[in-house]
Design a protein around this nucleic acid. Structure first.
Lengths: 223, 223
DNA sequence: TAGATTGTTAATCGATTAACAATC
DNA sequence: TAGATTGTTAATCGATTAACAATC
C-alpha cells in the first residue's frame, strides 16, 4: 500500500488494530497462513462485523469462505499504522522512565527507533544509556534539523514538559509522545499523543472503588 | 460522598476527570475558590455541557450564576475516582520500567501506594529499590493475603505476564494494572486496566504517516 | 432585578451491531 | 454444489452537542 492511500479511520479503530496485529503474530508463529474475522473476534471477544470493518479500513481485501492471508493482513495493518518504515525519535528526560524507554527493545516492531536521549542535567549527559547517546538539551535543535527527526518523546518532570515541547516544535519536530501529565500547548498542526498514567489509573481505581463499595453493601445486607 | 453512592459513568467521562482534577489543582494554587464549567471547558477545549455532565456524574451540585467551589469539586472527583483513600499495591517485575514505577512520586495523589516489588530473579531481590523492598515472586501469595493487597501491577517481560496474573488472582488480587502488551486471561470479575504503549504509539504513528503522506502529495503537485 | 450559570431534556452525531446479498 | 465468510447497507445504541427552563 502506498503511504498516500492511508484512509481515515476512527481513533477507536486505530486503537484496536495493535491487538489484532499481536494476535496475528501469534498465529504466524503457530504456522497459520489464513485467518477469518470470526476467529479473530472470538479470540479478542469483539463483534465480528467490527473486526471486519476495522480490517477493511487498513485497505485489506479478503476472500469469502477463506478469510485473510495472515502475512498480508499484518503488512496491511503495519502500513496503515506507519509501522513498516522505522522512524527515528529523540527522547528528552533521562530519568527512571526515560531510561526504561531508552532500553525498551520492542519499539522496533512499531516502527520506532529512539536514537538518542537529551537531558538538562550535566551529570547525565555524554555517557550512553542502554547504548544510546545522551546529549545536553541545548544540542537538540541542531541535531533535530541535521538528522531530520520528526518524533520527540517527553519523559521529563512535569515542570519541564511545556518548555521542552516548545523547543521541540521550534526545532522542527512534528509529533510528540508525551509521558507527562501536562496538557501541552502547541500549534494545532503538531501531533500530540499523551501517555497518561493518571487516566489509566482513574479507570482502574474507579472500578475498584465501585467494586469494593458494592461488596460492602452485600456484607451490610447480610444478617 | 459515601463510597456506596458512586454512580455509573461512561469510561469516556472517567477518562476526562483526571484532566479536570489537574486543572483544578492549578486553580487552587492560584487561590481561585470557585470555577464555572465555561471556564473549565474553554481551558480544556471541551463542550461546556459535556463538562457539566461529567462533573454531575461525580455527585457534585453547583450553584447557578456562581459555579462550583474548587475544593469541594476536587473532593468530589477524588471520591468518585477512588483517589481519596490510598490503596496499597504490589508491583511484579523490577526491570527498567518497574524500577521507574517504584520510584514515581506522583501516585500518592491518585490514591496509589506501591509498597513492595517482586521479581523472580534472585539477583534483584532482598535489596530495596527507591526505598521499596523487593521480594522473591513466590512470597507474593502469602504477603497479598497478610497485607490485604487488592491491586497488582505487572511490569514483567511479556512472556511472564500471564503466569504472574494467574498468581495474583489466586492470591486474592482484585485489580491488575498491566504494563505488558499481553491480553490477560483472568476471571471476569477481576478488573484489568492495560497501559499499552503500542496502542498509544499506533495513534501517533498513524497520524504522522498520514501527515507525511499528505505533504508528499503537496510536493508532487507542485510544478 | 438582570443575567450568568446550572441542570435537564431534546436533537444530533458517530460508532457499534444486525441483517443480508455477493462470492469463492 | 452448499455453505462459510466477506463486504455493505440498515438499525440500534450511546455519547456528544444544542436548546432552554430553573435559579441564585
Amino acid at each position: 500500500m502506498n503511504a498516500q492511500d492511508i484512509k481515515r479511520a476512527s481513533e477507536a479503530t486505530i486503537r484496536r488494530l495493535p491487538a489484532y496485529h499481536r494476535f496475528l503474530t501469534q498465529l504466524r508463529e503457530r504456522g497459520r497462513e489464513v485467518v477469518s474475522c470470526t476467529h479473530i473476534s472470538s479470540e479478542l471477544r469483539l463483534d465480528s462485523t467490527q473486526v471486519r470493518k476495522d480490517l477493511a479500513a487498513t485497505g485489506i481485501v479478503g476472500k469469502p469462505k477463506v478469510g485473510y492471508r495472515v502475512a498480508e493482513l499484518m503488512r496491511s495493518i503495519e502500513g496503515f499504522l506507519g509501522w513498516n518504515n522505522v522512524r527515528e525519535a529523540f527522547l528528552v528526560g533521562v530519568g527512571h522512565l526515560g531510561t526504561a524507554l531508552l532500553g525498551y527493545q520492542g519499539f522496533g516492531a512499531y516502527g520506532l527507533d529512539i536514537v538518542a536521549g537529551f537531558d538538562s542535567d550535566p551529570g547525565k549527559v555524554d555517557k550512553p544509556v542502554h547504548g544510546k547517546m545522551v546529549f545536553p538539551l541545548d544540542k537538540l535543535p541542531d541535531l533535530v534539523e541535521r538528522m531530520h527527526i520528526k518524533i520527540g518523546i517527553i519523559a521529563t518532570p512535569a515542570g519541564a514538559a511545556q518548555s521542552v515541547a516548545t523547543l521541540m516544535v521550534l526545532s522542527g519536530i512534528l509529533a510528540i509522545w508525551n509521558f507527562t501529565p501536562v496538557k501541552l500547548d502547541v500549534p494545532p498542526e503538531i501531533i500530540v499523543e499523551n501517555m497518561e498514567l493518571s487516566t489509566s489509573l482513574a479507570v482502574l481505581s474507579n472500578k475498584l472503588a465501585r467494586r469494593l463499595a458494592s461488596s460492602e453493601i452485600v456484607q451490610e445486607t447480610l444478617p
